[in-house]
Design a protein around this nucleic acid. Structure first.
Length: 828
DNA sequence: GACCTGCTGCGGGATG
């Protein structure tokens, strides 16, 4: 069915020599037929207009009073950008439509005005939606709502922010039964699942899945280096010169790296050889907002030749002129890679160009796998998960702030949210009880009693202050404790000792994890914001640094998240290794290495697990190659060492990499296995995920760390209190105490349950480990060796860099790579 | 001496 396009809009297109694009017409037609839509489209490409064409069409006659369209984006900056993009056509068509943004940056006065007299179009964030619906006026404000536009939805639904959003939408659907959703998403693995996510809360559930026809396929290549490829490490220093030359040859290059430290190192490395003084900039999440805005503005106006960045620039405002995207280090997954490639060249019919730069030999395989996956258009994005109880608790409290509710009604409402569609009444009641009283173990404390029941059975908040606290602490994003970093003048030096006070004030360079400064002594130098600075001291929530000219700075070790290697890429890497016919396309340095492995040991096969054992020095090593990512390997290492201890194999420690796991100890593992005193099938049996895992979790600090997040989200612990900001340390202390109480007296508390789930999912990768153990059951290939194998070299190099668990710490293990290689070749 | 890993996002409002 052809959509109806009002004359004034049609004329506007014509005046520009445009016609609405197919996907823009599709969205409008679907909306006019009474449906909701999920539009899958790459970034740019007139997506904003597609999302808002139905709104412009509805509002063209200026008759509509009140809020018509609510737009929700994961980024504040995107809301501002959309406002700018919308205001142009609206002004040019002379339409009487008010478009406003509302974020944490919006003044209190403007927010108050928006409540009384909302604009027809409000652009905002998921957190603001939660705030808006927690007010009694929500019913009035959203009663008129017709449309919700969800932008970059793929980026929200896999996190707790998405869970919070889903609950907000369930409430909106009740307040505005006529509302329909238009969601915009990048390409993802399971579009149907995302469509269901959207349709679930809507009374009118019909939701059309629309695809925008893709432009030219992207062109990917892997850097063919003339240099020697490192065996291990992630800094890609070898490629700096070649990268610099690549930047010179292109108009504008966007260089993605996986960590902030890598960004600092790469930026510094490029700057060191920047003889032509090319304008190259740096962009990552620790740098100050002003600094980042400056870089973004320079980029938008075409003043930069290159930007080195982390995933800060994965989403957001489009720049037209990027003609090359570089990924330095492992690409990790094809969907992530595709998203990044999409940041280059937004002219639809030109191919985006990307260059992958592996930082070590193993990563060559991963890059190769990514190139093939992208060529086939394969998606390996994460799927949305069942919702967490901590997020639900936050929402329940918010709803009590809006108006008193009956448990039955709210239960019916929240199960309309896709992540909570299978929530049992029993769990809901437990969450409600937790919000009302704190649960059995905390019932005695009045401060945890946040709800009261009216005589008519309705729940309401126990005190107006509860609502204030709730609104101050809204949201699901928890940060590590951070400190501000200020640049000051160096203190005076006298007789080699620093004297005098720290200079006051100073420019804010950015923020860093408080934790990092615990590892520094005064005078230590490190890289930050593209400069080498010296640590001058700390005061309150600020760290002071001065400019330094050290040759040998430390690299900040941030406490960031981890990108897991996708299962899909891992599978492809295994396949490449297992297919010598494909090796010729690999660089010689890599194929030679695999050939050596084949000759001196065996190659890991696709459907089995290779376990090598060999002696080295006074220790015996067991190295296996599951290719399941660092997290799963770390968990496996933890569990295997416990088992080996019980089997009296005397393990001392282990180290995990993205591809392999190495365990060492005093017992002669080869002999133990040969004489059947140690069974590998038993060692790797799946039941380790039962009692062993429980026992380990019980004594792990990891649970406490995870609990902290859940407790904050559930509102048990306040981040912010009217008038004062709590420090990270205070929060951690009180969260530890509560955890101990609950763990002892109420181990099935809803928050402990939430914590277990989060730990299993985010930090331990239990599911993936379980799948691997099932896959390799009775498919373990044991290869006893007399010395280290070529494939084991990279993971063995990691030993000594990481804190080692176990009784002893190897010092003899810090040998250089070449020595290990010579050993592997039997030259020693 | 080094070939030094671990991302991002948001956030009251009533009162004087």
């Amino acid at each position: 069915m052809a959509p109806h396009l009002p004359l004034i809009i049609d004329d506007w297109f014509t005046a520009r020599g445009w016609t609405p694009r197919a996907h823009q017409r599709d969205v409008l037609a679907s909306y006019q037929a009474g449906a909701s839509q999920l539009l899958i489209a790459p970034t740019g490409a007139g997506k904003t207009l597609a999302g808002f064409l139905p709104t412009l069409t509805d509002l063209v006659d200026g008759q509509f009073e009140g809020l018509h369209t609510l737009y929700i984006s994961p980024l504040k900056a995107l809301a501002v950008d959309v406002q700018r993009n919308l205001s142009t056509p609206i002004a040019e068509m002379g339409l009487p439509i008010r478009v406003e943004t509302r974020t944490g940056d919006t003044s209190a006065a403007k927010r108050a005005r928006q409540r009384v007299k909302p604009p027809q179009v409000l652009l905002t964030t998921p957190e603001q939606l939660a705030l808006l619906i927690s007010h009694p006026y929500a019913e009035l404000m959203f009663g008129t709502l017709r449309r919700v536009v969800l932008d970059e939805l793929h980026a929200l639904v896999t996190s707790k922010r998405g869970e919070l959003l889903s609950l907000g939408l369930a409430r909106l659907a009740r307040l505005a039964p006529d509302m329909r959703i238009t969601a915009l998403s990048a390409t993802i693995a399971q579009p149907e699942m995302l469509r269901d996510w959207i349709a679930q809360p809507l009374p009118q559930r019909r939701t059309d899945l629309l695809h925008m026809a893709g432009g030219a396929p992207p062109e990917l290549s892997i850097l063919q280096t003339q240099e020697r490829l490192p065996w291990a490490g992630h800094s890609a220093v070898y490629a700096h010169r070649e990268l610099y030359e690549t930047i010179q040859r292109h108009k504008t290059t966007l260089l993605f790296v996986n960590t902030r430290s890598q960004a600092e190192m790469l930026f510094q490395g490029l700057w060191d050889i920047n003889d032509d003084m090319l304008p190259i900039a740096l962009h990552h999440g620790s740098l100050s907002v002003e600094q980042r805005r400056k870089v973004e503005a320079a980029m938008a106006s075409g003043k930069l030749k290159a930007v080195v960045c982390t995933s800060t620039l994965d989403l957001g405002i489009d720049w037209g002129d990027v003609d090359l995207v570089v990924q330095v280090g492992a690409p990790k997954g094809s969907s992530r890679m595709l998203q990044r490639i999409g940041r280059a060249n937004h002219r639809l019919d030109d191919p985006s160009r990307a260059l992958l730069v592996p930082s070590n030999r193993f990563e060559v395989l991963e890059c190769e796998a990514a190139v093939e996956a992208v060529a086939e258009g394969h998606q390996d994005s994460e799927d949305p998960m069942p919702g967490g109880y901590d997020v639900l608790a936050q929402h329940v409290l918010g709803m009590a702030c809006a108006e008193p509710f009956l448990a039955n009604d709210l239960y019916a409402e929240v199960t309309c949210a896709w992540p909570y569609r299978d929530l049992t009444r029993e769990k809901f009641d437990k969450v409600l009880d937790f919000v009302a009283t704190g649960g059995y173990a905390l019932r005695a404390y009045e401060r945890y009693a946040r709800l009261k029941q009216n005589p008519d059975g309705k729940w309401r908040h126990s005190h107006p202050q509860v609502a204030q606290q709730y609104r101050l602490n809204i949201g699901t994003i928890i940060e590590e404790p951070m400190v501000r970093v200020r640049l000051v003048r160096a203190r005076g030096q006298k007789h080699g000792r620093t004297t005098g006070p720290i200079g006051a004030g100073g420019r804010v360079l950015g923020e860093m994890e408080e934790y990092f400064f615990g590892t520094l002594s005064l005078g230590d130098t490190f890289m930050f914001g593209g400069e080498i600075v010296a640590f001058e001291g700390m005061k309150d929530n600020e760290a002071f640094v001065s400019r330094a000219f050290s040759k040998d700075p430390k690299i900040p070790s941030y406490m960031g998240g981890k990108f897991p290697l996708s299962t899909y890429l891992a599978e492809r890497v295994r396949r490449i290794m297992d297919s010598p016919g494909e090796w010729p396309k690999l660089p010689d340095q890599v194929s030679d290495w695999l050939r050596l492995q084949r000759d001196l040991s065996v190659l890991p096969r696709r459907d089995s697990l290779l376990v090598e054992t060999f002696p080295r020095g006074t220790n015996n090593f067991l190295v296996c190659y599951p290719f399941e990512g660092r997290l799963a390997h770390q968990t496996l290492g933890m569990l295997l060492t416990r088992r080996l201890e019980r089997m009296r194999a005397r393990p001392l420690g282990f180290v995990a990499s993205e591809y392999a796991l190495a365990i060492w100890g005093l017992g002669d593992l080869s002999a133990l296995i040969r004489t059947n005193r140690l069974s590998l099938d038993e060692l790797f049996s799946e039941d380790m995920l039962g009692d062993d895992l429980e026992a380990w979790l019980d004594e792990s600090a990891l649970m406490k760390r995870t609990f902290r997040n859940c407790a904050i989200i559930a509102g048990l612990i306040e981040r912010r209190h009217p008038g004062k900001e709590k420090t990270g340390r205070q929060i951690t202390m009180s969260s530890d105490i509560i955890y101990d109480v609950l763990y002892q007296h109420e181990p099935d508390h809803i928050l402990i349950e939430a914590t277990r789930r989060d730990a299993a999912r985010g930090l331990l990768d239990i599911e993936r480990l379980g799948q691997m153990l099932a896959r390799i059951r009775h498919h373990i290939v044991h290869k006893p060796l007399h010395q280290i194998s070529p494939l084991a070299v990279p993971v063995m190099l990691d030993i000594g860099k990481e804190p080692i668990f176990g009784e002893a710490r190897e010092s003899a293990m810090s040998d250089a790579a070449d020595e290990l290689i010579r050993e592997a070749l039997g030259e020693r």
